[in-house]
Design a protein around this nucleic acid. Structure first.
Length: 170
DNA sequence: AAAGAGATGGTCT
DNA sequence: GACCATCTCTTTT
């Protein structure tokens, strides 16, 4: 579920073009949820959601942005966790290059921004993030994460994105 | 610092 | 043809 992913590192790229960030905000989506892509059953687009867990489900949002989810349910469940915000750890210059000159926090404090900063797109759909060796993976580096993240039981973000992590943005 | 509206295109009805 | 799991820019406190 969502708390499992909080605090872990998302690493994308290879060699000297690696950008990584700590996951600071997530949201879970299940097939029970009317807002979930999996709610109305499997379609060509969301087939990854119904596949094996540990893979990345990437889709295009509003025709503009990419959004990345990690499949968390068993095959057939249609359960995934949306990566909502990151704190950039490595490759800061590269991320800023892709996102434009913005404040540190503004680099990846949203699903679409996160994908742009780490260069995640549709070609990553279905990628296994639990095994090393691929150009994108999620690892646990053992850094403790502040407890009690604010996650509403209902879907629909009514609040502004305020990341539960202390940033030093200037 | 906060709030509102436009952009933009794939997917589903 | 409508609906968005959003972002950015512009305007207003």
């Amino acid at each position: 579920m969502a708390p499992e992913l909080l605090g872990k590192l998302l690493i994308v790229g290879a060699g000297d073009r690696v950008v990584s960030g700590r996951i600071v905000e997530t949201e879970a989506y299940t097939s029970d949820d009317p807002a979930s892509h999996s709610f109305r059953g499997e379609t060509p687009r969301n087939r990854t959601m119904f596949g094996r867990p540990g893979r990345l489900y990437v889709y295009r949002s509003y025709g503009i942005h990419w959004c990345a989810n990690v499949v968390t349910g068993s095959a057939g469940d249609g359960q995934a966790v949306l990566l909502r915000a990151l704190s950039i750890v490595a490759g800061l210059a590269i991320a800023r290059d892709r996102r434009g000159d913005r404040t540190f926090r503004d680099l990846a404090n949203g699903p679409g921004k996160l994908c742009q900063a780490l260069a995640i797109d549709g070609t990553h759909d279905g990628t296994d993030v639990t095994t090393g060796g691929s150009s994108i993976m999620i690892v646990d580096d053992g850094v403790p994460f502040p407890p009690d993240p604010i996650v509403g039981p209902r879907v629909g973000l009514s609040k502004a994105v305020d990341v539960p992590w202390r940033f030093r943005s200037r």
